[in-house]
Design a protein around this nucleic acid. Structure first.
Lengths: 383, 383
DNA sequence: CTTAGTTTGTGTATTGTCTGAACTAAGTTT
DNA sequence: AAACTTAGTTCAGACAATACACAAACTAAG
């Protein structure tokens, strides 16, 4: 073994810096990379030639001159490898195959009728096998599989508890690694969604973002300084069980007045039953609202307000630059957005309101699988 | 100018690593530093000799042999410089002079009768002048002044709004830098306290800590990965205005049911008035409780419960490894601790409870000035 | 068409930092 | 007293980054 691990470390850092500069500014010349990164021209030349050797970057003819020699444009080779992102829901498995820029190559969805681990596992295998079969040949082939689960997941990727799937202590990561001999990451659903929104949600630079995943319950993914914050054990973000009503409705968690009892799909279904005196599904309610059913619209307005109450709390705590609302609730955007924003405005300190952007996801069902897929990509590109 | 900023960067990192290893394990030999850090013996020797040259480290005779040549023990020279930490309260200014290990050399307190900025500024000058006069001569002398203010402070140290002092848009940092030509940091009170508790609160390693500053209101300082998290503008941690009662008491902030209306000194004073039918100060109530006054004890029990409600929310969101309750409430520890812990136990998910440590500060009034002082020290030692 | 100036990218010498290994120093163990 | 251990220093070699020089390829302007 030669030279310090730290000489290698610094090269690794600079190489990653050059690669990211190319990724974010593609196409770009060596000269411009040098200017942006502050690295010496020679250093950039050297690192770029290595990156070309690694097939991560390629040259694509000459660009326009700006009064001197014409630059050789560099592009990130997003097709030198592919990533798989799997979103496990309560009644479906949704899988994506993406290239290294996160562009979707193929998708595959399967619906689930039973949720016991053995059956679900078989279905996951089916989805992954399908996606692997569809993968074009490339230098690195599949660089990793990311899986999202609606569950409490430890920092090590161990599924501790998935209430809606009725799973406890499942080592999905181990099983997949065993079967495919690939890099595997298992992530909580809200964290995955947060990462997806961070990378694909909008183009503005975001440092601190809170992703509110409002489906049957409410979870959240917390991004701080461009990184997922997962808490000391990986259990952070349980905002759904923040109490907003000290002596409110009793929750399955044992507490009273949990936010998710007032602002999730669960809350909508309860309200709907009360208003219409019969069981109506979430999608049917959306249909009603689309047809201008005032009762339905009113229910959504109210949910928007309740969502706003909890989000105000989150803003007061985190002072984030962005809050994104995702998961199934996002599809009722039209009727919740106004009351949501109004509530937040009246319930946060003026200082906090100045720069925060409140947004309802428009990636829809893609934020989660894209998120896990991109976690694998970033992991791979860090080498 | 010679060599890359990055060769220097790596040396800086390693030098800081060696210095911190010596600080945390003083006294220690070069050989052991090499073992702990993984750096080559020669590298350590070289860096240590520079640190000795910088007067940050000194040799202190030989240690015990373990079967070979006796080691030369190294010590961190905590007296090569001093730091000033100032805690500005609503009716006092409390200043500390510490050495570079955070040991208190001198303290100085002044009470305030008026809070307009001009008068307070003069008093701050008086405290600082006193502390500077008391500073022993040393290589680096005063390495910086840290100031804590009960206010919303921007990331740049600009005081935007201090409700209890009635200040808006005060550039205290600029004024102090101008007058003393020293490195100055202005920090929010809860953030300062959090840092103080992180460094001096207990010896176990802590990564993520939430410091709940419960005085007249409730604020919080958030430590993530050993660093203060301040939010995108520096306004994070406003947990006092998290609503725990949707249709509760109206707060000065305009919202209803803010946590601090139920669990702060403000809440205690209200309760006391109701129970005793007259105005009784916080300190008097503590005295009553000490004399086993059941009504007083009951009030504190109740406050403990209310504190617990809000802290449960914080735990569900952050999954921290430590929550510390500080500021004035801490002095009623005896009567709030049990109901506090019980409430938290019943209101957090079992997964979260496993490793979290709930603690009431025992640094008392020192956590804040020690915190700002230590911020300056760490800043200085990073060079 | 010529000349001057600009921009891009590469090659070479130099520098700073770390490591490995040999070496000196100063003990302990048998 | 010889053999072993441990501590700390010194020096050559490896590596990565910079500075600088230079060639190539262009634009601008007379």
């Amino acid at each position: 073994m030669s030279v310090t691990g730290d000489a290698m470390y610094i090269k690794k850092m600079n190489k990653a810096l050059v690669l990211n500069t190319i990724r974010n500014n593609t196409p770009i010349s060596r000269a411009k990379v040098s200017k942006i990164t502050g690295l010496n021209k020679g250093t950039v030349s050297n690192l770029v030639s290595e990156l070309i050797h690694n097939d991560l970057v390629y040259e694509t003819g000459t660009g326009k001159s700006s009064g001197g020699r014409r630059p050789i444009m560099l592009m990130f080779n997003e097709r030198c490898g592919y990533a798989i992102g799997i979103d496990i829901g309560v009644n479906y498995i949704f899988g994506l195959l993406t290239d290294l820029s996160g562009k979707i190559i193929t998708k595959k969805e399967i619906s689930l009728s039973v949720t016991d681990y053995q059956s679900v596992k078989e279905n996951i295998y089916t989805v992954i096998d399908f996606l692997i079969n569809q993968t074009p040949s490339s230098t690195y082939n599949i660089i990793g599989i990311g899986v999202s689960v609606p569950a409490i997941v430890s920092n090590e990727g161990f599924v501790l508890f998935a209430p809606n799937l009725n799973w406890t202590n499942i080592n999905l990561k181990h099983d997949l690694q065993q079967k495919y001999s690939l890099n595997v990451t298992v992530e909580n659903e809200a964290n995955a969604g947060a990462y997806g929104e961070l990378k694909f949600g909008n183009k503005n630079h975001v440092e601190t973002m809170i992703f509110i995943s409002a489906g049957m319950g409410i979870g959240s993914g917390i991004i701080i300084n461009d990184t997922l914050y997962k808490g000391i054990n990986g259990f952070s973000g349980e905002v759904g069980h923040v109490s907003i009503e000290n002596n409110g409705i009793v929750c399955t968690c044992g507490k009273k007045g949990c936010w998710e009892l007032y602002a999730s799909e669960k809350a909508i279904l309860n309200k709907t039953k009360e208003v219409y005196q019969k069981e109506i599904s979430f999608l049917e309610l959306v249909e009603k609202a689309k047809k201008q059913d005032q009762k339905a619209i009113h229910i959504f307005n109210e949910i928007g307000k309740q969502l706003g109450i909890g989000i105000s709390n989150v803003i007061n705590i985190f002072n984030p630059d962005s809050v994104v609302i995702g998961n199934r609730i996002a599809s009722s955007k039209t009727w919740i957005e106004d009351s949501l924003k109004e509530t937040i405005k009246s319930r946060t300190l003026p200082f906090h309101q100045k720069e925060v952007e409140i947004r309802i996801s428009n990636l829809g069902p893609y934020s989660i699988p894209l998120g896990v897929s991109y976690i694998m990509i970033e992991d791979f590109l860090k080498k």
